[in-house]
Design a protein around this nucleic acid. Structure first.
Lengths: 192, 192
DNA sequence: GATTCGATCCTAGCACTGCTAGACACCCGA
DNA sequence: TCGGGTGTCTAGCAGTGCTAGGATCGAATC
């Protein structure tokens, strides 16, 4: 038994190595540079090994996305915990979200831009994704306003953040407006 | 002279054919299906012909994007013209924008999701792009509110629309909330 | 401790991608 | 009618994701 357990441990370790390496490579040189050959070379195994862990490149992206979702949820909760009052919590949430997107562009892409083969807003949505949305809902629900569904409000606020995150990174918005944009969004959308 | 003019006319026609075919193919089967081989086959020329018109695939995407920007600007202006009052104009604008994104997903991708090699929010930004932003600015500027820069407000409102458009199409938002999301966004962001 | 057998991994290759060099053919102007 | 130049195509390069098949290594058995 012990031998098999060791093998399973090693296998799990290698799987983590693949995901971590893919993420690192993507952050360094973009997802286009994450080819199966380069990835295999970096983990010092041959290509087919990747396919014994994942169905294909898409599933590797999905794995990075799930890892990112867990991190993001934790960061959002930490940011809101450190803030006092609904207004401050929402502002902290917004900044933490945009900060995460800016610091981890490849992970953000894996989550929301690329096809990682994950289901969203459905029954079979993976737990980390549900939890990340829950982290948003926790702080945003309290400022949705009377008669407005918290889920609906969260979707709208999230979409706005997502738009800001992606358009900012694509260089489609003026850099000097970054902070006022957040202020405006929070002031207008949230009902304090 | 006449011969050369005819040749230039034919060349221009073929260029339009390339862009139209690329767009059609992208709308039918997604941008992944728009390969240089397939595109060449559809226009009944060989691959290298594409490269006598465009530097590469990226420039073809860019051409589709510019065409889309012009259309979008016209649609947005038509929608706002038909509405009475600032509130109705903004709501019409939002619906027209999301409608365009939903009806022309490939064009929308070319504009805001893919790399078409175009400059944004800069000096050398192509006119159609500047004009599309101007179309947004025209209706949104009047509801920015006192002391709020119209450009800043437009960026935020646009980002929200963009977020809704992309997340909706990626199946990341609940379909049944589509209309209330727009209502909420307009009610909260716009100062009427 | 030798041997068999199965899991594990790698080499090689497929069909495809964007892009390009060089040969060919055709058409215009003389 | 003929030469020259423009325009187009064939063929090929390096790279992509993915996979079939054989080789190798190590664990369990006799």
């Amino acid at each position: 038994m012990s031998v098999q357990e060791r093998k399973e441990r090693e296998r799990a370790a290698r799987e983590r190595l693949i995901v971590a390496t893919a993420r690192e490579l993507a952050e360094q040189q973009g997802w286009d540079a994450v080819t199966t050959r380069r990835l295999a070379e970096r983990i010092e195994y041959s290509q087919p090994v990747l396919y014994s862990h994942f169905r294909g490149k898409r599933e590797i992206i999905g794995a990075v996305a799930l890892e990112g979702a867990t991190e993001m949820a934790a960061l959002l909760r930490a940011a809101t915990r450190a803030a006092d009052g609904p207004r401050a919590r929402v502002a902290a949430l917004a900044r933490a979200y945009l900060d995460f997107a800016a610091r981890n562009p490849a992970v953000y892409d894996a989550l929301f831009q690329l096809d990682g083969g994950l289901a969203y807003a459905q029954e079979d949505t993976p737990q980390p994704l549900k939890d990340a949305f829950a982290a948003l809902l926790e702080s945003l629900g309290e400022v949705a306003g009377d008669g407005v569904d918290p889920g609906l409000f969260t979707e709208v606020f999230w979409a706005s953040l997502h738009g800001l995150a992606t358009l900012t990174r694509a260089g489609r918005l003026l850099p000097e407006y970054a902070e006022p944009r957040v202020e405006l969004l929070v002031d207008r959308l949230a009902v304090i």
